[in-house]
Design a protein around this nucleic acid. Sequence first.
DNA 1: ACGCTTCCCTGGAGGC
DNA 2: TGCCTCCAGGGAAGCG
Length: 266
Amino acid sequence: MPELPDVEVFRRYMDATALHQTVAEVVTADARVVQGATPADLATFLRGRRFERTERHGKHLFAAVDGDGWLELHFGMTGFLRYYQGADAAPAHGHVRFRFDNGYELAFVDRRKLGHVAPVADLAAYLAELELGVDALDPGLDAAAFRELANGRRGQVKCWLMDQATLAGLGNVYSDEVLFHAGIHPRRRLEDLEGADLDRLHGRMAGVLEAAVQAKVRPEAMPAGFLLPLREVEGARCPRCGTSLERVKACGRTALVCPACQPLPG
DNA sequence: ACGCTTCCCTGGAGGC
DNA sequence: TGCCTCCAGGGAAGCG
């Protein structure tokens, strides 16, 4: 479930491994994860080129191709990157593999194939086409701008946090985490929240996302008091107050909440 | 605009 | 051992 912190870690991984090397070949093992081009066209687009730098917007990763254009990588629910040398080290489900002239490969791995890679000619135009909202870690997203995003909107606060057209980067896991740290129930109505609630959400969001990146998104490396490592734990208790955590349906997803720290009025 | 459902996919878990 | 169903949850799409 790659969300903003996961994709940021992938971005840094790609920066540390796969930049400034000439692409010798692009091998597509499953064409379903190549979007907006045929595998042959993708290979033609990248062959002889280098990835020069990366950018991330929300859950989307973009690698600048020298010359012109970009490669988009979107990871769906099970996607990740793997850089390796030799067929023995090749991961399973490496549906698209970028082979460099130094003998290494970067594989786009995605067991469930809900992600994709795509050539992008004009990044600004493509971002507009995607209708992505402001990145959740955009430095320009101050408390006032955050409040403005909620202006005139209604519905469950968790839906709003996960709406990529409003705020890009949060999914089920990190919206839960932010709501927990802000003490707000995922089913609370956005229009019922006060300014102070929105300010608290805004403040906790940056801290949560940055801490997760710092931990390289490893659950065991998350700061104390995080909900995330407890998601898979049956009968887990709130790290703050010890109350049994509950799973509730919110926005079509299973949300993890502390009923004491995140009360639901009514 | 919102809320709900279905679909895309795969694999692990649990029931029978 | 195997078959069936459910569930995971990013995103698009369709409907009321």
